[in-house]
Design a protein around this nucleic acid. Structure first.
Lengths: 210, 210
DNA sequence: TCGCTAACGGTACTGTTGTCCCGTTAGTTG
DNA sequence: CAACTAACGGGACAACAGTACCGTTAGCGA
């Protein structure tokens, strides 16, 4: 009748917290090295120097583990830029994303996590929440640009920020081309050009024009 | 010394071909239903009504099977549009991609394949080749637009086509938002606006301007 | 600082994935 | 159409991921 409480929720401090940290760290390492395909919980337990049973009891499946890892990653947030122009801010954003995805460990980790989200609904939700947070942190750049008169008033800020990331993730996941600085700059430039043309306005059907 | 020839290469006709077709079809079904995580070769063999041993001998790993599936998918090609304007052509392209990714089976299949490519180099190469083909089929739309004077002469056609797909795949894989017609139209509009602004020019460092 | 019990960890067990071996079926060549 | 052998298929086997059980450690409240 009374459902057994999730392990780790009643005494979340001390050892429990240490175990979680060690396991999440090990899971990140394993994911970065071999991707989801090669991830198994027994291996994570070995890497984390933790009992196999513990990992199976607290997380149970690869999907749950990755979901928890995402929750953990969502905690750390990176501050947005404020350069005074939309192009400056979006370029800063694009370069931040580019550096992250280019980084040996981080890039592989993101790839693996996105792949994992592909096959599990709850992981996909966690991934969405993660990016919602990130995108909302940067949305003020666009709002300021609107206030400055750089963009139409009914521009959707989040959509502009997403437009910056899209080509970078597309390269990372689909075409596999090099992710260099030029790519990042192009992504920012494209987003600005499209936003100025009114592509991301909320209420109108998009009118194309010269 | 003489390396044993890959099975299926000496007598590719008749039964061998039938087995390959059945296995690839079953693999596609399984991928569309459960994603890579749930794909195992024994199950594919069962679905295809083929000996388990055969699948393990000819493909051996999930990655190899997905790679072969991609090669098979690359065979079928879809003709590009020719509406007379860049925006018309790119909108047609965006809607084609949108319909494909929205389709129950196809969408899940693409997700799964991209996830698989995440963890295996050879699969990633096959995926890249697949999209190179697709993109090159549509590049003439941009070349015509250049010839018409709609775009700067040194615009990179492939980059424009990729710019159309990027936001659609980004939604599919990362943010998980709805992929509707409006999204497709917006993707095409954004690509046109950015291309007109000179974002995809080859030789210049991008100059941003009003 | 003491006691209660949440949470951990070792070990024995089970089920399933993937391998090996060898007999059978059916392309392919002359 | 007959011989040769590539490729398939079944069943027995091995390795390891995941489960169950139970004793041990240590967080937390009084």
């Amino acid at each position: 009748m009374n459902d057994p409480v999730e392990p780790g929720t009643v005494r979340p401090g001390g050892r429990t917290a240490r175990v979680r940290a060690a396991v999440l760290r090990a899971a990140g390492d394993a994911l970065a090295e071999g991707g989801i395909a090669q991830l198994d919980l027994a291996d994570v337990a070995r890497r984390a120097d933790v009992g196999k049973t513990t990992v199976y009891r607290r997380w149970g499946t690869v999907a749950n583990l990755v979901t928890d890892l995402l929750l953990d990653m969502a905690e750390q947030s990176l501050p947005r830029a404020d350069t005074g122009t939309l192009l400056g801010d979006l370029t800063a954003n694009a370069q931040l994303v580019q550096r992250t995805l280019t980084d040996q460990r981080q890039g592989a980790l993101f790839k693996a996590i996105i792949a994992a989200a592909t096959g599990d609904t709850r992981t996909a939700q966690a991934l969405r929440r993660f990016y919602d947070t990130r995108i909302n942190e940067w949305a003020p750049c666009v709002e300021q640009a609107i206030a400055r008169g750089e963009l139409p008033a009914d521009t959707d800020p989040q959509e502009v920020i997403r437009a910056v990331s899209a080509p970078l993730y597309y390269r990372l996941l689909v075409t596999g081309e090099d992710l260099d600085n030029a790519t990042a700059d192009r992504a920012a430039n494209a987003a600005v050009a499209a936003a100025r043309a009114g592509t991301y306005r909320r209420n109108t059907t998009n009118a194309s024009h010269i």
